[in-house]
Nucleic acid binder design. Sequence first.
DNA 1: CCTGATTCTGCATGATCATGCCGGATTTAT
DNA 2: ATAAATCCGGCATGATCATGCAGAATCAGG
Lengths: 256, 256
Amino acid sequence: MLTQERHALIAERLRSAGSVVASALAAELAVSEDTIRRDLRALEARGVCERVHGGALAPEMQPRPQPVRERTAMAGDEKARLGAAAARLAPADALVFLDAGSTNLALAAALPRDRRLTVATNAPAIAALLYDRPGVSVILVGGRVDPQSGACVGADTVAALARLRPALAFIGACAVDAGHGLTAFSLEEAQVKAAIADAAAAIAVAATPDKLGTFAPFRVVPAERIGHLVTTRRGAACDALADAGVAVHVAGPDPQ
Amino acid sequence: MLTQERHALIAERLRSAGSVVASALAAELAVSEDTIRRDLRALEARGVCERVHGGALAPEMQPRPQPVRERTAMAGDEKARLGAAAARLAPADALVFLDAGSTNLALAAALPRDRRLTVATNAPAIAALLYDRPGVSVILVGGRVDPQSGACVGADTVAALARLRPALAFIGACAVDAGHGLTAFSLEEAQVKAAIADAAAAIAVAATPDKLGTFAPFRVVPAERIGHLVTTRRGAACDALADAGVAVHVAGPDPQ
DNA sequence: CCTGATTCTGCATGATCATGCCGGATTTAT
DNA sequence: ATAAATCCGGCATGATCATGCAGAATCAGG
């Protein structure tokens, strides 16, 4: 068995099982444990695995989705500017959908107070923030609440979404890329976001620049389907999205 | 099983259940309790858990600055005591419904952290408070959000309620009286509360003493249908309700 | 085909790590 | 108050690791 074959096999094993045990691999492949260890060192140098005592683990794949609670704490100012800029897209006297996420929560907080709006959301935090604002009526799309994202997900949520026809939906972005479109960290999130996209007449995405040019495992919509992108810094990823037909808005450092 | 895998498993268990028991983990993973203790020590050093006698707990998340609205609604100490007393009625591993209202919000905040629960609610504020608690899964019943009560109301809400069968429902009381039963200030609220009552196997009411012996225009359920009443001061209205078959719990000044 | 260089592999050795067990202290429950 | 469960520190043991070295396989060029 060639060294590279062994490497490929170990990498495959890491992908499928998430971990490998050095001694077991040595026995299975009929080589010494030293050889396996050397293999693991080589793979680690290439970032394919992370060595631990006894074997190796598959590295954490995607940038791990942090719980919203923690995300909301960071980057307060930038999120606020983003929210204010995005809020200007919200048409008056229409049904606007706000997906869950820290950016959209900031967006909700930054909604202009002089505008009459009906806001639908699947995020309890957004509903709790807006429900007693004068001039704003809130429709909450229920379902099981996902602890990770703080959003309602599941079949009930998707079914309830089918009865709404928002003029504009702000979909929370886990990752946006011109090639991969809008993507999400979990299947359930992606299903809900896709249901929102299906229902909405137009789609807007508010995202911090670190989300741009990245992608997550689950596809929501292609980039062409995104009408507006609001972010805080112009970059290569913005241009690529603009080429795909997305109207890109950059929120200046001073929102006045 | 690799040490790191065990660590990851324990961390995951902490996230989902909120606590782990050393002896149970040792038996389940077929290692000695000493090893588990060492694991817990390592995880504690990384801030993943907080060790206690017999096992470990998920760390308290830093208290998030709550919207002023929610804080003011709490009315301080009395509501908290009431909430803690009422929370003791919540059966473990069962579906519990929490209606909207400031008392029930306090109840949600006072829920024991070591209990596994599924909580359904029609109040975005309660869902936002509970959704990322370890050991608690939250189902949000959606609908139009009533600005007055902060609760979801309307036909969609009633329809969604019909699919739940909570073992116990804490219905928010606008007014409770032995003769008039549980009553509400608006028709829509009353309809939703009645739908909750229909769905639930048992009904509990947590109410401050000023609600007792009073009534409001819209009838929800008769007094006989109320299983438990939790309040903070014994009085004539309590006795009348006890005569109607309600189990009355009085939360002492020191919940200890 | 031969030769020298390079790489891969296995083995030995001493160090490090993970685990289980034991005795005594501490906490919890009855 | 007493018994049981739990915790802590230390220790012994076996597994695992890093390193250096030597033989085998592979390869390039003559």
